[in-house]
Design a protein around this nucleic acid. Sequence first.
DNA 1: CACCTCCCGATTGTCTGACAATCTGACAAC
DNA 2: GTTGTCAGATTGTCAGACAATCGGGAGGTG
Lengths: 226, 226
Amino acid sequence: MPERAVRFGTLHLEEPHSTVERVADELRRAVFDGELESGTPLREVALTESLGVSRPTVREALTMLVAEGLATREPNRGVSIAAPEAGSVRDVCRARRVLEGSGVRRWPDATDEERGRVRSTLEAYIAAVHADATYQELNERHLAFHVSLVGLTGSERLVAMAETLAVELRLALAQVERIRRNAHDQADSHAALVRLLEDGDIDGASVFLDRHLADAETSIIDALQL
Amino acid sequence: MPERAVRFGTLHLEEPHSTVERVADELRRAVFDGELESGTPLREVALTESLGVSRPTVREALTMLVAEGLATREPNRGVSIAAPEAGSVRDVCRARRVLEGSGVRRWPDATDEERGRVRSTLEAYIAAVHADATYQELNERHLAFHVSLVGLTGSERLVAMAETLAVELRLALAQVERIRRNAHDQADSHAALVRLLEDGDIDGASVFLDRHLADAETSIIDALQL
DNA sequence: CACCTCCCGATTGTCTGACAATCTGACAAC
DNA sequence: GTTGTCAGATTGTCAGACAATCGGGAGGTG
C-alpha cells in the first residue's frame, strides 16, 4: 500500500518490534491477499519508496521472505514472488502426508493437550464455516487444523516444518482464490477424521487422511491449471 | 579476508560469487569447526573488520544464519551462536525418527536411484572410517547417510528439512568434539540397517533405526552434559 | 527480412558514513 | 547494600554513492 504511517505516529509500535519485521509482514500480507501475483518482481527501490523505508531494510526483509520460501532470488536479477508449480505442489503434499500421517498415527500416545489442540482447531474451523467467514479466514483455519495434526508428534520442529509447508500452500491458494470448493464438505471430512481417531481407528484415520490429502493435491493442481 | 578456505563437504560448485554467501560460509565453517563456541556473540563491527566487508553485508549474512537456526538474534542485543539444549536435542531426534522412519518404511516403494543413494552414502561413510578420516569428515558422512534415508520418501522438501535438522546436530556435535564413540561400531550399525532393508525386513529396520536414534539422543545429551 | 553485435539504461550488490534507540556496566548517592 | 543515573558500546535504520551485471534495442551485415 502506498502511504501508511508517519514517522512520529507511534500507533502500532509494539506489534512487530523491528522495521524489517513490519516490511516483511506487509509483503506477506500482500502476497496472501492476492495483491501480488506469483512471479511479480519485487523491485527494491519501488518498495523503498512505497513503504518509506531504506533500501538495506527492504533487502533484509526480502532475504527473510526468500528464506521462508515465499520468494526466490536470482543473482543480479532480484527477488520475485515464488511461482507454485505442479511439481512443488506434489512435493508439498507428499511431505504433508508424511508429517500429518505421523501425527495421526501417534494419536493414542499424544498428550491430552496435543489432542485438545486438534479438537479446538477443528471447532474453530467449523465455526468459521457456519459463520460464513471470508475466504482467507477459512483457509487459515483449515491450514491450522492440518498443522495441529502434526502437533500430535510432539515435536515443535516438525510443527515448524508443517507451517513452512503451509506457507507454500497459502501462496498457491492465493493464486486461485476461486477454488473455494464446498467448505461444508471439507469441514465434515475433517470432523470424520477426528471421529475415527476418537474411536481409536487409527489405521482408518490414516487411510482417510491419505485420501483427503491426495484429493487436495489434485484439486489444487487442477485449479492452478498446471 | 585473503584466506580462501578449502571446504571438505559440498565441494560441488565454484565460489559463491556473492560476498554475503562467502561471509555466511565462513561463519558456518568456523562454527562447525568449533572455532566459535556456542553462545558466542557475533559482533557486527568485529566481523566487519576481520572479514573486510561492510556492515550491511555482515548483517545480511547474520540474518541468513539466524534463518537457518545456526544463530539466534535478540533485539538490540545482537546475534550469537545458538546454544543446543537438552530439549532441543530431544526434539531434533524425535523429528529425525519421524522423517527417517518414514523413509525407511518406504524403502520398497522408493526408486532405484533413491535406494542407490542410501547405498552409496553408506559406502562413503564406511570408506571414511577405514581411511581414518578426520572427525569432521566422519560426521559429515554420517549425517549424509541419515539424510539419504529421508530421501527415500521422494520429497525434496523433507530432505531439506532433514538437512536443517542435521545443521543443528552438527552444531551440537561441534561442541563435544571428543564424543567420537567407536566409529567402526557406528558404521557397522548402519550397514546392519541397510542389510535389513535389502532383505525386505522393513519392520525390523524400522525398530532398529528407532533404537539407533534413541541411543544417539542419549549419547549426545550425555556428552553435552545437559 | 532475418540475424548478430554492441551499447545503454535499469537493477542489483556492496560500500561508506552517519544518527537515534537501546542495552551494559560501573560509579555515585542514599 | 541498594538504588539511581550516566557514559560507553552495540544495534537498528537511514541516506547516498559506485561498480558489476543483465536485458533490450539500435544498428550493421548476410
